[in-house]
Amino acid sequence: MNAIDIHRKLEENAGLLIFGILFVSAIGGLVQILPSIFQETVEPTAETRPYTAAELLGRDIYIREGCSTCHSQQVRPLLAEVIRYEAPAHAGESVYDRPFLWGSKRTGPDLSRVGEKYTDEWQRIHLVNPRAVVPKSIMPAYPWLERRKANSGNDVHLRMKALQRLGHPYTDEEITRAAADVAGMTELDAIVAYLQSLKIDTSVDPSEGGH
């Protein structure tokens, strides 16, 4: 028996060939994907918490406006990035991100540690017209955020309920009062709340692995 004989058999038997192809192409998945499904789950870091109702709405607006097309949310363990953005990203920081927004391209800066770097007022001015504070900015303006109500679909509690079902530790009380929490908020308020929540988790030792 050698490879040529096997090859001949496969060539003459389509069913066997299909099975063979499936088997060979499954090997990569068996090595890469299967073990990670069965391994212990990633635990949130000490300071990682589920998003509040306002932050959650802001995050959905961030997704809707395609912010992650130009902004990443992952600090890689490289010297230059750590000097600029502080500690590298940790898997535990992303457990409440569904879907995660790590992104793969930086036309603008990384935003995973942008929280509290600027004041709310700066963020508002900048989102409505980036050129007002950064004259050379190429970021688009988002003036409609100021005019639209964040919870106009009146569904923030449903979004939280869906996440609760997926395992986010929202209490029923938090979900019940969610609509009241964001009453009157504009989309601008919500996305600023979200951006200000993106903070470095100081409880993680940067020399410790996990990213």
């Binding site: 600027y118 007022e121 001015i125 007002a132 504070v133």
Partner: peptide, 14 residues
């Protein structure tokens, strides 16, 4: 980002 590259302030805020 707030005070401007030339430090002259911006946007009637900074």
């Amino acid at each position: 980002a707030c005070h401007g590259l030339d430090a002259r302030g911006q946007a009637n805020r900074f």
